[in-house]
Amino acid sequence: MTALLVVLGAAVGAPARFLVDLAVQSRHDTPFPWGTLCVNLTGCLILGALSALPLPREAMALLGAGLCGALTTYSTFAYEAYRLAATGERLYAGLYVAVSLTAGLGAAWVGIALTRVLLG
C-alpha cells in the first residue's frame, strides 16, 4: 500500500515539475536553470512544512516521498551544474550550486518554522 501511495504522489509531482520548469525557464533567456531551481526550492519548502506536521506514515509516503520526491530532482541539478561548467559558464555553475544548497536548506527551514508558527 505504501508503495502505491508513493507512486500516486509521484504521478502528480513529476508532471508538475515538468510544467513548472517549462513555464519558468521559458521566461528567461539565460543558460541559468531557473526552472529546476524553482521546483527544487519549492519542494524543499513543502517537505520542510510536511516534516513539521504530525502526519501518519502513509501521508508522508504520498506527499513527502511521492510528491516532493518527484517534484524535486537532484540528478537534474547535478547534470545542469556540470553542463554549465562544461560549456564555460563556470560562474553560473558555481552560483547555481551555492544557491541551490543554501536556499534549499533555507527553504526547508522556513517551511518548518512557518508550519510551527501556524500550528501555534
Rank of each mutant, 00 (worst) to 15 (best):
T36H: 05
A108P: 00
S100D: 05
V24D: 13
A23H: 13
T87I: 01
G48K: 11
V6L: 03
R57P: 10
T73F: 11
Y92P: 07
V12C: 12
C38Y: 00
L63E: 09
A14M: 06
L53W: 05
M1Y: 10
A98Y: 05
C44A: 11
W109G: 01
L5W: 08
A108C: 13
E58R: 06
D21Y: 00
S75E: 13
L37P: 07
T30H: 14
R17E: 13
E58T: 07
A16I: 09
A103M: 10
R17P: 13
L84H: 07
R27S: 07
L47H: 08
F32Q: 07
A70F: 10
Y74S: 05
L45M: 12
T42F: 09
Y82C: 01
R90A: 11
A70W: 10
C44G: 11
A113I: 01
A93M: 11
N40T: 04
E89M: 02
W109C: 09
A49L: 14
Y96H: 11
T30S: 15
V12G: 00
A113G: 08
G69V: 09
S100R: 10
A81I: 01
T73L: 14
G88P: 11
L71V: 08
L53G: 01
G111Q: 04
L37W: 10
L37Q: 06
E80A: 03
A16E: 04
A103H: 09
L8E: 03
G48H: 03
T42R: 00
Y79M: 15
R90G: 10
R57Y: 04
T73W: 07
P56Y: 00
R57N: 07
A14P: 09
V6W: 02
V6C: 06
M1I: 05
G94M: 11
